[in-house]
């Protein structure tokens, strides 16, 4: 490897990760503001202004950073930061707008599936390390939720890859492959279509749990656990978790967009390079907005919080069964269509 290629990769890493960090943080907070405003309107309130999340972060930075007596300081302080950077690093592997992933051959869907554990894991460890009973109860609930939703999520990821493999595509876990061959174009008949539609619904229902939003937010549960695993966090540590939450929303929505709606407008409209880019980015942001609207805002204003054993039950029995049905429909799709075409 010569110096030129090496320095090119170095520049990509430095500027790419800095740019993506800025992107993730900014839009994370923007979508948080939109979500709060919309849900307030749906509940007949006025709600905070759109820029309220930015103000929240700024305010948290000037607040005291309290480390409780029972906490373990070095873990307590380090974990929020690790959670934030871990979540930001996922953006490196995702296609955003019309742009391909920054490192398309650096990690794939399975890697992202694993990296998505990091924010939740950091919340859990942070909650455990703060030494407050509320936080510990919240943290163990978050962990149980994570076990619960990972099962249908894994089924979904593997189904998408397996279906691509059956269609003769190589490197099926790669995000650039998945984005260039949308799942809806890879079905032979109605069965596969229904299967993927079921899986999409499951994924939209996994999202609120992944983001710890109502009805799956029993880990934070302001009413009975007083904020749950974040109860002892304050000041800049809480600001880190606040930012993580925003970035996580963008990441999760981008994954849904990349898996199910990777379409772009520029090719359709036949636009040039720069206009095309702008249109694609705007369209991407709109798609992310739709995902946030449907899987976060609408669900959280319309359903009440579930108990933790209800959450585990919901994900392990009905949703897992639903996604297995989706998997089976996708598996039978080509078989049955072949049967019809040959018969």
């Amino acid at each position: 490897m010569d110096v030129r290629a090496l320095s090119e990769i170095g520049l990509r890493i430095v500027f790419g990760s800095l740019g993506l960090a800025a992107f993730g943080i900014f839009f994370g907070l923007v979508y948080k503001g939109i979500d709060r405003k919309l849900s307030a309107h749906m509940q007949g309130r006025i709600g905070p202004p759109f820029r309220q999340p930015f103000r929240d972060v700024a305010k948290l930075f000037v607040k005291e950073n309290i480390v409780p007596d029972h906490a373990i300081p070095w873990i307590f302080n380090l974990i929020p930061l690790v959670g934030l950077i871990g979540t930001l690093s996922i953006l490196v592997y995702l296609p955003l707008g019309g742009f391909p992933p920054l490192f398309s051959s650096g990690g794939d869907l399975i890697v992202v599936l694993y990296l998505l554990i990091i924010p939740s894991l950091c919340l859990v460890i942070g909650g455990f390390s703060s030494g407050s009973p509320y936080a510990i109860v919240g943290a163990q609930r978050e962990m149980a939720t994570m076990i619960a939703y990972e099962f249908p999520f894994a089924i979904l990821v593997i189904t998408i890859a397996w279906n691509l493999l059956q269609k003769g595509v190589t490197e099926v876990f790669s995000f650039s492959t998945i984005a260039s061959t949308p799942v809806w174009n890879q079905v032979a008949g109605p069965l596969g279509f229904i299967g993927f539609a079921i899986l999409l619904v499951v994924l939209l229902l996994v999202t609120p749990a992944e983001l710890s939003k109502i009805p799956f937010d029993s880990a934070e549960a302001e009413t009975e656990l007083a904020g749950g695993l974040l109860v002892e966090y304050s000041g800049r540590n809480l600001a880190m978790f606040y930012l993580t939450d925003g970035v996580k929303t963008v990441v999760m929505a981008s994954i849904i967009v990349a898996l199910f709606f990777p379409y772009n407008l520029s090719a359709l409209l036949g636009l040039g390079t720069y206009e095309g880019m702008i249109i694609d980015v705007v369209f991407f942001l709109f798609k992310v907005f739709l995902v946030v609207l449907f899987s976060v805002t609408l669900i959280r204003v319309s359903i009440a919080r579930l108990k933790i054993d209800q959450i585990v039950y919901t994900y392990w029995i009905p949703l897992t069964l639903a996604s297995l049905v989706g998997l089976i429909l996708v598996m039978w799709d080509s078989v049955i269509m072949n049967f019809f075409t040959t018969a």
Binding site: H70, I72, I75, L121, V124, I125, F128, S129, G131, I136, A139, Q140, M143
Partner: peptide, 12 residues
């Protein structure tokens, strides 16, 4: 993570 909590984290 349960072991981490039980053995290493939590109050003294």
């Amino acid at each position: 993570v349960k072991v981490l909590y039980a053995a290493f984290l939590g109050p003294e």
